[in-house]
Design a protein around this nucleic acid. Structure first.
Length: 262
DNA sequence: AATCGATGCAACCGCAGCAAT
DNA sequence: TATTGCTGCGGTTGCATCGAT
């Protein structure tokens, strides 16, 4: 099911992630946040490109990511939102706490698209051929979808955000925005439910470190520590595994910092 | 038991948008 | 204003697994 691991021309690994790589990435991001995805793998000791690391983190390692099959409620919500938003998976995913855009997109293509096609056709015309053998959707489907997209894209950014707000008939949950003080810009944070049902959803309930979110750009990323799923026991000691990206600036008179990150 | 097509999903790729310079 | 670098998004691909024959 996964791509076999290989090494490309530039010496970077591609394909399936090993458990060791997962642990390295998880530990690094939890400790330092993702200050720069392009540089991160170098400091985290990973032979991966930044994009690959980002994707792995966003889709699998990020705390709060929900695995497993979709509930009926989730299915209905995806269908409803897809009808309204088209293939804007990130916008759809924002209303599905714990789900990733990749997961929703895959689920749509493998399960729900068939359903919408069946629903929109008379029963005697339900197609028997496989989806795979017909990669392109019918013109009608494509037109329907592209019109929804074009309406959305024809709006200005400001109007678009308003449109998104209006469309959001269910409580917003910005699951794309990881709770990282190093990376989560204000434009993403909406004060909603960050981690779905298992978390407290108010801003007040966020960990103490969140308050210094903006004033301490390089602060230790402890924001995930409010999650039960995180077990810090296996986190490697800082100096053993990682290079802190700004360590060159911190060589002298920075004992306070080294104490902080212990 | 072996083969082969269908399926599901993790991962990759290219592009657009945005911010910094 | 133009350029550059980074991030995020959506489309697509590759491959393991499943199920039918």
């Amino acid at each position: 099911m996964v791509r076999t691991t290989c090494i490309d021309k530039s010496g970077l690994k591609k394909g399936a992630w090993s458990e060791e790589e997962d642990n390295k990435l998880r530990a690094y991001v939890l400790r330092y946040g993702h200050w720069n995805w392009q540089q991160l793998p170098k400091f985290a000791g990973l032979s991966r490109c930044g994009k690959s690391c980002r994707l792995r983190w966003m889709n699998y390692l990020r705390p709060g990511v929900k695995r497993g099959s979709f509930s009926e409620e989730e299915e209905e919500l995806i269908l409803k939102l897809h009808k309204e938003l088209g293939n804007r998976w990130s916008a759809i995913t924002a209303r599905l706490p714990g789900r990733t855009d990749n997961e929703v997109k895959n689920y749509w293509h493998t399960h729900l698209r068939k359903r919408t096609k069946q629903d929109s056709k008379p029963k005697d015309k339900i197609e028997q051929t496989s989806e795979r053998s017909q990669p392109m959707e019918s013109d009608a489907d494509q037109n329907k979808e592209s019109s929804a997209i074009s309406i959305f894209h024809s709006t200005t950014d400001q109007n678009r955000s308003g449109l998104e707000t209006e469309i959001a008939a269910v409580p917003a949950a910005d699951t794309n925005c990881e709770l990282s003080p190093l990376s989560c810009g204000s434009k993403h944070f909406d004060g909603g439910d960050w981690f779905g049902e298992d978390s407290n959803s108010s801003v007040e309930s966020l960990p103490e470190s969140f308050e210094s979110f903006w004033s301490e750009p390089f602060a230790l990323d402890t924001s995930y520590s409010n999650l039960k799923v995180i077990n810090y026991d296996w986190l490697p000691p800082v100096e053993e595994e990682f290079t802190y990206p700004f360590s060159s600036f911190l060589d002298e008179d920075m004992d306070w910092f080294h104490e902080l990150i212990q």
